[in-house]
Write a protein that binds this DNA or RNA. Structure first.
Lengths: 236, 236
DNA sequence: CAAAAAACAATCATATCTGTCTTTTTGTCA
DNA sequence: TGACAAAAAGACAGATATGATTGTTTTTTG
């Protein structure tokens, strides 16, 4: 899509003359259409990759004309920006949801994050991240969100497992280790650099590692031998 | 670059009427120009990413006209193919060179591979790998080479450290662990998802892990967890 | 109901990349 | 030196993406 060079946005006329009894039904429909377009963008990112995610493809995927699409997002950059924001919030939401679940063992974080990485949102995000390497505009949008995610990821874990506060170095290492291994595996699977069969042992090993790094590790090593209870299925 | 849809290559006329006293100097120059074009392609992949690595950009990077370029590679697909082959052989060459060095400790493999991953060749390769996810033609070219590399990577390590033959499961895990962590870190650094300062601790930890997985592990590193029992892999 | 605004659709002009073709330059050898 | 082929350069048409403009339908609202 190539995020065109920055343009001077012409003055947007006030979307509502006065904020009083404004229309509701139409606004709802517009929001719905915008959401449909954003979802279509994510699907396109997964199907075609960032490079081939063009405005016509997205419009077709959303079942709209390109003209209609440009009505909701005045240019491709705008659409990408909104899509990134949506993906970001979806990641955060998924994490918050996971934190509400009652059972919290050390290894739950691994399982939860691994499941996250199987979903299309991560593929789309990685497409964007790779493109951002050579696209400064895209990078400037993505970078702060990546940092925020990392921060919240750690905060979440820190809050969930307060006992780690005693060993901040180990905690940081465990976090980095988890993110690196899980994301690395997810990418390797996608790009065909890794065999599917190697996933299970790696997950088990990582869980063992985290347990071993835990400060007051009670029967830590045993955790690695725990029967796996996770139905791992590929998300479509 | 988008590797155009497959085309029927028209019959290539025999490059040399008769193989006798054919010109040598000119042929050498042609080979040199081809090499220059391939190098330019790699630089473009690093600078602009796969999507924006276009034939005009490569020609400009090589200091040639596009017409001259098309003389050496009849289409963009051909250029990409040759570039991939060159990158692949370069990776293998670098590994063979590393194997010739006298000192061989367990952690040497980590250091060596990590150094490899810092070079532009890996960035270019990853660009191609990501693009291949949504480009079947590119994937069909890349996949066998990826498999071959994995195979040779393991073979190299197996030959370098024969003592691991006693624990094939641990060996496989150590290999996967190394590749996943190192490649994952390299990508995370490139895409800005990871902080530079976290690299060193991770390298140190990985080395400890490998040492701990080693069969005749003599007093495994303190920081690392004790070697845990790994699921025994079925003999292949 | 009628005007206004939003949603949607269709088209145009521009730009770029691609593959092919033609022309010029350079080097090799009879 | 002059013929000849390779190397290099330039030009062309087809395809596609983009942003902008204009036209049409639907919905809100006075």
């Amino acid at each position: 899509m190539a995020l065109s060079r920055t343009r001077i946005a012409r003055p947007v006329r006030p979307p509502r003359p006065a904020g009083e009894k404004g229309p509701q039904l139409q606004a709802a429909k517009a929001a719905q259409t915008r959401a449909r377009l954003i979802e279509a963008t994510v699907r396109c990112l997964v199907k075609y990759g960032y490079a081939n995610t063009t405005t016509p493809k997205v419009a077709e995927e959303a079942g709209l004309s390109r003209g209609a699409m440009m009505h909701h997002f005045e240019n491709g950059t705008s659409l990408i920006k909104s899509t990134i924001a949506e993906l970001h919030e979806k990641r955060l939401r998924a994490f918050r949801r996971a934190a509400d679940k009652p059972v919290h063992e050390v290894t739950d974080l691994v399982e939860t994050y691994w499941r996250q990485l199987q979903k299309p949102a991560f593929i789309a995000f990685h497409e964007l991240a790779v493109a951002a390497r050579t696209d400064t505009e895209l990078a400037s949008i993505l970078k702060p969100l990546q940092d925020e995610f990392s921060e919240k990821f750690n905060a979440q874990a820190e809050q969930l497992f307060p006992e780690w506060a005693a060993a901040p170095a180990n905690f940081a290492l465990a976090m980095t280790l988890s993110q690196t291994i899980l994301e690395g595996m997810a990418i390797s699977l996608q790009t065909g650099a890794m065999d599917e069969g190697k996933v299970e042992p790696m997950l088990r090993h990582l869980e063992g590692q985290i347990a071993a790094l835990a400060p007051a590790a009670p029967a830590a090593v045993q955790a690695a031998a725990k029967p796996q209870r996770m139905p791992r299925r590929k998300s479509s």
